[in-house]
Design a protein around this nucleic acid. Sequence first.
DNA 1: AGCATTACCATTTTT
DNA 2: TGGTAATGCT
Length: 719
Amino acid sequence: MIDYKKELNAAQYEAATTLEGPMLVIAGAGSGKTRTVVYRLANMVQQGIAASNILLLTFTRKAAQEMQHRAAQLLGQSAGMVGGVQGGTFHAFAYSILRMHKPQGYEGDLSVMDSADAAGALKHCKDTLGLGKGDRSFPKTQTVMGLLSKARNKELTVEDVLRREAFHLASYAGDLTRISDTYRAFKRRHALMDYDDLLFELERLLQSDADLLAYYRDRFRYIMVDEFQDTNLVQARLVRLLGSGHNNVMAVGDDAQSIYAFRGANVQNILDFPDMFPGTRIIKLEENYRSVQPVLDLTNAILDDAPQAFRKKLFTRREGGPTPHVLRPLSDLTQASMVTSKITELLRTYPPDEIAVLFRAGYQSYHVEMQLGKLGVKFKKYGGVRYSDAAHVKDVLSYIRLVVNPLDLPAFQRMASLVKGIGAKTCLKLYDAAQKADRSVLKKACARFPDLQHDLDMLDALRAKPLTPAGLTQAVIEHYQPRLEANYPDDYPRRQHGLEQLVQIAASYNDVDLMLSDLCLEDPATDKGEDISAVTLSTVHSAKGLEWSAVLLIDLVEDRFPSRHALNKAEDFEEERRLMYVACTRARDYLALFVPATIYDRSGGGNTPANPSPFVRDLPAHLYEDWRENFTGTLTRRQDARPVTVSAARTSGPASGGGRQAEQGGGALGNGGRPASGYCTHKIFGRGKIIQHVPPDKYRVNFPGFGLKVIMAQYLTLE
DNA sequence: AGCATTACCATTTTT
DNA sequence: TGGTAATGCT
């Protein structure tokens, strides 16, 4: 029997043993959130709740699997009863239901498009409309995709999104709206859904069919939603839709760790949860089991300046431990060598998989990757190129998709394009013919392109005989083999190896459909759990929910972290701060913050001076050791921790915590009547966007072309 | 129509 | 740096 009282602290115990009624668990970083959910899951099963009545929505499928696995272990079962829990991402969950109940308006078998497919479809629409032809400044397909998706996720019109975050494209609002409409119609016509559609179509389905809704409400009588702070508006509505009635809904999250606003996540969801489900019990997990005191002190300080709705005071019993380091290399290049030598040093104490290098954006790790490669240190990278984006994997998956759904347009285009001599135009013609069952066109094409004939024959053959997912995958790979060797003469063995892994993955499925949707919706490379122990390189976003003994955070300079692309609005700056918080709270024992003095800048012709990130600059000096790299490569401890900056406009006060009074009050940035948003003008830097009021008399302003500056109010003309 | 070459541009984070 | 779109050649 499990002794819940002994294994959990009081707050965790309450969360794990209260099974009925709505509950909101505010789980601080490292506060044993997963443990709590796992014990709750085990408890539910012990109380006789059928696994099939439980819905566990998580941020990744991996997270759901891990929780189920651990709960089963706790119960001394192998998968067993816990295995029947429906769990995964909102998107995967939505698709699993949509596959069974096709929504109105779609003809034929549904297919999910990954982002590449969606971009292709969008480009097709753009070209069909003839928009942006010869206009150099017309937004690129990917930009358009991002804008449309953002509008969708935030549930705003395209015009609104442009007005709010891409003002320079405002004149294209009409064109973009037309593209959006065309794209929408295109998807309907070809039974295609992109990621966003999955959520909205599920909502539409449940709203339009009361019986179905009643069925699923009864089916999922217990709902748990992880990372609730990163849900968007539709996701919250889906939870309400499925949860009202029984009201057995537990949301878990931390408003201080909300980092997905850019894709429509709405922190307000977690704040509003108690309103959505009246009578919600709120539980705060405040004991941190992860980090040593010095690390926790630093991470708490990052949040001191932030407006926070659910105030928590995280504490730890892990006294002692090393003080975090701020390391200042001469440049981003020497930063890479400093990082690698630090890693070598750490490898004497920790195994490789206990060490991570984190960064704001994928490209920032390039230098480090090279250095590690030189030294022969193994690493795995998260947040870069995805496994299923690799061309050969997409090729093979396209064949499989066509076996399942012969009229899957993106897959058909991909397959046909593989035949030499067939391009975009011919593809569409052939697809059209296939759709209309126009045999003559296809026959002619097959006569002209024998390879196409082979492909179609194979598809027909595979469709005729029922095969397991693994068998099907194997058969397709065999068929694809000659083309693999022809297309990738230099590195086809490596790719072949990757395809063998695909067969392995397929072997764990009974249903091809399910396999395809999982592969489309999630990255199996992160799933598979690399068996080799290696140092981790990861974007901060991909590091969410993970932890390491030692964490090195690089490129902590203005324009990189915070990213210069994320400073359009005051809220954006706060999101960057939370990102910084998430990054630093990944560390158990050792935390190093790298602040290069110069960074490479193409436009500036080589290395240009960089300003330390405000997130480092604003840290009280006693919370870290400050080390600076000398020209000789040695390090000098800086005792006087007064911050040094390059910016002429820097007007900061003394380092000993000047300007550290916490912002008070709610709202965007309450500060006693001073404007915390809007625009202002400076004699030298021109017009800029006010990001933050820095008490008592300064503002943090983003000047286009100059970046982020902190300036005394007297030098600014407010608008 | 397809395909290779060139020129240019913009550059986050992810389901 | 890379990927993408316009250009020119087959």
